[in-house]
Each structure stands twice: as structure tokens, then as C-alpha cells.
């Protein structure tokens, strides 16, 4: 019984990480109808930025409150910039082209980022050497938030860690915040208008380019935050980490109904639980197959996802 409860807690915890990444996916899909395959890799870049910042801060100050805040800010700002660049130079020129071209571009960017970061390029400027690209070797992420047991039941039968609570809190807060942003603000109504029909929205005076770019930056910043929470839990940082988390987050977004904010969170928690139970009761090597099996099952039964609405194609 205690095993079962512990699996539920762990499943919810890994689900929240997927949820944070899935929120970015679902937002970008909402406005652009584009599956941003590079989302997970943007997250990976964010983790490396956070890693670099923590490294520069040194052991003493990286785990202070200000240090942690700075690490998150640098990573999120850097990723927002990266998201802006990707949108401006890769996706915007293709917006009126067939959707397949944008999809291929997204896959290309994902590939370039995840394999580009596996090169180890170090620039030598005089005596100083600057790491341009980190290389394939996994690195240990510093313990910026020291894992402590938040709640212990019985004789360590069920343990709740502090980071699990923190990430669940952040995920729920962000979900509520995003929902408010989309439905209660001017920017949110602009987003919904662009999502509905971006040409008509432009005719109504909505700056579509700016709305899309901002959404992209927001999504990328979210990815960076999610990535850091993931890295704190998992501690190993490597260039391919984004690919799998990204794919699973995408699966979560589809399960919930892509474009639907609370749906993404629910889908992600479901996926996290599913994975945890399969891993807990069989073997961890099956973990990666679970998400895709789940995805195929959902797409067969209800292709629009749990909360999505089926949209008929008009000619």
C-alpha cells in the first residue's frame, strides 16, 4: 500500500515537469498551429544556461535565494531570446507556406540544437578559454535547491521531497496564471484572435507578429524554468535531455487536447502517473515506450484529446 502511495507521489512529481514543458507546447500550438519540435531542445539550452550561471556564481552563492533567482532569470531570459530568434528567422518566413515546411524546419532546429550542443568547442582568447558548446558528456547539475524530505510517513514508507512540492506548486500557479492571461487580459484576447484566424486578426488591427513572437518567448521562458526544475530533480545535464522530455510533454499536450491549457496539465499528470506505475511494477527500461503507447491509444480513441474539440476542416 505504501508503495502504491509513493508511486502516486513520484508520478505526480514527474508529471508536473512534463506539465510545465507541455504548457509551452500548447501555447505555441494555440497561436501558430505549429508543433514546435525544438521546444524540448530550447529547454535543454535553458538548463545549460542555468548550469553556466550557477558555475559562475560559485558554490557559496548559487544556493542562496538571490542566487537561485538569478539562475532562473538568466536561463529564462536567455531562452526567451532564443525563442525570439528561432521564431523570427526560421518560422516567420514560412508562416504562409504549407504546414509541412514549418514542421520540417522545427525538426531541423531540434536536431541542430541537440546535436550541436554535443560538440565541444572551446574558444581560446589569450589565456582565458570560453566554452562555446559543452560537449556530449553529461554534467552534474549543482544542488541549488538542497533536496530535503518535506513529509515522511511511517518508517520512511512514503516520502515527499521538497522539490516535488515546489514543482507542483509552480505548475499549478503557472497554469492558473496562463489561464488568466489567455482569458482575462487584452493580450490574451489578442492571442485568441490570432489563434482563431490570424489574417482577420491582422485586419482588426492586432499586431499578429508581435503577439506570436511574445507567445513564443513566453513559451521558451517557461521551458527554461521547467528544465531547471527537471535538472534539480535529475541532476544529470546532457544535450539530448530535451528531446525526450520535449516529446513526452508533447504527448501530454496531445492527450489533454493540444491548445488547451488545463488539458496540458491534466494530460501531463496522467502521463507521469502512467510512466511511474509501469516503471514501478515492471522495469525502468520500458519507460520510453509508455508515453508513445499511451499517445497512440489516445489518438485512436479520441484524436482531439481529452479536453479538445474536434474541428471540422472547411474548404
Amino acid at each position: 500500500m505504501s508503495d502504491f502511495v509513493q508511486h502516486i507521489i513520484n508520478g505526480l512529481a514527474s508529471g508536473t515537469i512534463y506539465a510545465l514543458v507541455a504548457l509551452g507546447y500548447t501555447m505555441v500550438y494555440g497561436v501558430l498551429k505549429l508543433i514546435n519540435f525544438a521546444h524540448g531542445d530550447v529547454m535543454m539550452v535553458g538548463v545549460y544556461l542555468g548550469y553556466g550561471t550557477a558555475f559562475q556564481l560559485g558554490r557559496g552563492s548559487q544556493s542562496s535565494f538571490l542566487g537561485v533567482l538569478l539562475i532562473f532569470l538568466v536561463a529564462m531570459a536567455g531562452c526567451a531570446l532564443l525563442g525570439f530568434v528561432i521564431e523570427r528567422f526560421a518560422y516567420r518566413p514560412l508562416r504562409e507556406k504549407p504546414r509541412l515546411t514549418a514542421l520540417i524546419t522545427a525538426i531541423g532546429i531540434s536536431f541542430a540544437l541537440s546535436y550541436g550542443f554535443q560538440l565541444d568547442w572551446v574558444a581560446h582568447l589569450g589565456s582565458a578559454s570560453v566554452t562555446l558548446l559543452p560537449g556530449a558528456a553529461p554534467r552534474a547539475f549543482p544542488e541549488i535547491i538542497k533536496p530535503t524530505e518535506w513529509l515522511v510517513f511511517g518508517d520512511r514508507d512514503v516520502v515527499v521531497w521538497n522539490w516535488q512540492v515546489i514543482s507542483l506548486g509552480i505548475a499549478v500557479a503557472l497554469m492558473v496564471g496562463l489561464q488568466l492571461l489567455v482569458f482575462k487580459t487584452r493580450f490574451g484576447s489578442a492571442m485568441r484572435a490570432v489563434s482563431f484566424d490570424h489574417r482577420t486578426a491582422a485586419l482588426m488591427g492586432i499586431p499578429t507578429d508581435r503577439v506570436i513572437a511574445t507567445t513564443f518567448m513566453l513559451g521558451s521562458a517557461l521551458a527554461a524554468g521547467a528544465g531547471l526544475l527537471y535538472a534539480i530533480k535529475d541532476t544529470a545535464v546532457q544535450p539530448l535531455m530535451g528531446t525526450y522530455v520535449g516529446l513526452k510533454a508533447f504527448v501530454a499536450a496531445v492527450i489533454g487536447g493540444i491548445g488547451h491549457v488545463p488539458g496540458a496539465v491534466v494530460g501531463a499528470l496522467l502521463l507521469g502517473l502512467c510512466e511511474e506505475f509501469v516503471v514501478g511494477y515492471t522495469s525502468s527500461s520500458w519507460r520510453d515506450a509508455v508515453a508513445f503507447g499511451f499517445l497512440i491509444a489516445v489518438l485512436l480513441v479520441r484524436p482531439e484529446g481529452l479536453f479538445g474539440r474536434a474541428v471540422a476542416e472547411k474548404v
Binding site: I35, R99, L100, L103, L247, F250, V251, V254, S283, S285, W286, D288, A289, A291, F292, G293, L295, I296, L299, L300, P303
Partner: peptide, 28 residues
């Protein structure tokens, strides 16, 4: 048979997922 009823980008994900499932099955 099931996935080709879906639109392009979903098909992409399902085929990718299929490839990964095959790999995991072989590994195990």
C-alpha cells in the same frame, strides 16, 4: 491503418513513437 486517419503532424509523432517503441522492445 489507425494513424493515417490523422493529420500530418500527428502522423509524424506517431511514426516517431513507433520507431521508439520498436527500439525499446528490441532492447528488452
Amino acid at each position: 491503418l489507425p494513424s493515417l486517419r490523422l493529420k500530418g503532424d500527428y502522423l509524424a509523432i506517431v511514426t516517431l513513437g513507433f520507431g521508439e517503441i520498436i527500439r525499446v522492445v528490441v532492447q528488452n
